[in-house]
Amino acid sequence: MDKPLLQLDNILTGYGTIPVLHGIDLTLAEGDIYALLGPNGGGKSTLLKVCSRQIEPWKGNVKVAGRSMEGVAPEELAKVGVCTIPEGKGIFPNLTVSENLVMMTHSGTDLATIESITYDRFPQLSNKRKQLAGTLSGGEQQMLSMARALGTNPKILLLDELSMGLAPIIVKELYEIVAQLAEQGIGVLVVEQFARTVLGVATRAGILINGKIISEGSPNELEDQLSDAYLGTKGKI
C-alpha cells in the first residue's frame, strides 16, 4: 500500500454558513471496506458528496490515488473510476431497465459488457429489461444501481445507505457483492445507518457524530459503542 486510493485531508464544509463537517481525515486503501456509521444528521451523506465532488469543501483536500481533485467535475470523476451510488435513488425511475444500463456506458464501458455482467449476476432483471425501473421492487432497484459498480469496473466505490428500505436478506446479498468487489482490489466507502449489516463485511469503521469522526477502528471494537450513539442509553443532560 504505497498511495491510498482515496484520501481526505481536514475536510471542512457545510450548507450556507452552517458548518456540517469539522475537519475530517480519512484514507481508503485498495481492498478496504470502510464503514462510516452514525446517527442521522451527523454529516455522513455530506462527506460522501464531498468525495464524489458534488459538494465543494470550504477547506481541505480530496485526493484520488494521490492526485488532488480540486476543480474536477463529478462527471469527470465518474470517468476516472470513482463510482458513486447515492442514497435511495441510484437509478432513473422513468427509464427502463435496459435504458438505465445505457446510461452507465457514459463512464466508458461498452453496453454489451455491462449487460452481460448485469444479467449474469441478477438474472431476475433480465426478464424485466423493458420495465420502468421505478416499478421494480426495492431490492431489484438496488440491484440495478449496484450493476453500475459491477459493470463499469471502478477503482473506488462510494455507497450511500445501500440498505435503506430493503429486507435484511437482500441487504446481505448486496454486501456480499461489495465484499467480492473489494477482493478484486476496489476501495469501498460505505455510509450506513443500519450498522450491523455492514460491520460483517467491513475491514474498518468510523463513527461520525456532529461532523466529527469520534472513533475509528475495527468493526468489532466499534460495535459496542454503537447502541449508545444511536439510542443514547447513557444519555447526556
Partner: peptide, 17 residues
C-alpha cells in the same frame, strides 16, 4: 423502548451473523 430488541434491531439493522 430502550430495552426493546426490536427497536435496537430497527436502528442497527438485522442481527449480525
Amino acid at each position: 423502548i430502550q430495552g426493546n430488541p426490536v427497536v435496537i434491531d430497527a436502528y442497527l439493522g438485522g442481527k449480525s451473523g
